[in-house]
């Protein structure tokens, strides 16, 4: 009954396949969970939801790990999963809530309140429209190139570069218009 009983060497190879998959998965988690969390954080503007979404993302990644062929593409593969998870969450949310709640990220972060400038900058980044904020995060935090961001967001590269330019331009203007911080920056 070849169909129903595996011989010993088959069992061993199945076990080692499982172990290999687990090892691969853990490597993926340890290499990318920080970038993914930070991306989710800036995308979602809530620490706890960001963490949930990252958890969901990795769980989904585990289930479809076999579809990841190119290890070099792992990060953008994960980002794509995360974007999809977040979109799904948003669809659910529209049924759950009638109004969009304000980002509450700022009140929860105690560690950045100590640093006035960083806190201020944090607020400014959060004020950026999502279409500018998202490519900026992908570039600064995840280290993607313009081409890669264009691929991830399904935009052309020129649009991405323009949005990156506008994002920094807005931050620079905000910084220039803030006398307190200018003083501290110059002093």
């Amino acid at each position: 009954m070849k169909l129903f009983s595996r011989n010993k060497s088959d069992k061993v190879s199945v076990l080692s396949d499982m172990r290999e998959k687990q090892r691969q998965y853990e490597a993926l988690v340890s290499a990318y969970h920080k970038d993914l969390y930070r991306y989710a954080y800036w995308l979602i503007q809530d620490q706890h939801i960001a963490e949930d979404v990252v958890q969901e993302t990795f769980l989904r990644a585990w289930k479809s790990l076999d579809s990841l062929v190119d290890a070099k593409a792992a990060k953008s593969w994960l980002i794509t999963i995360l974007r999809r998870e977040n979109a799904r969450r948003f669809e659910r949310k529209q049924f759950d809530m009638s109004e969009y709640d304000e980002p509450n990220i700022l009140d929860k972060s105690t560690d950045i309140e100590d640093d006035t400038e960083q806190y201020w900058l944090n607020r400014q980044i959060n004020k950026l429209p999502l279409e500018y904020r998202e490519p900026l995060v992908l570039q600064v935090v995840a280290g993607f190139s313009g081409d890669e961001i264009a691929g991830l967001l399904d935009l052309n590269k020129n649009t991405v570069m323009t949005r990156l330019f506008r994002a920094r331009n807005m931050l620079k203007e905000a910084l220039d218009n803030n006398p307190t911080l200018e003083r501290s920056a110059n002093g």
Binding site: Y25, E26, R38, E51, L59
Partner: peptide, 29 residues
Amino acid sequence: LESKLERAMKVDVPDDLASRIILRQSLDQ
């Protein structure tokens, strides 16, 4: 500005996030 931006954007990641992700996966499995 970019250095400041980097510092601001690289927010703290919960310490045990990686282990919680792996835990979740093994529980799910």
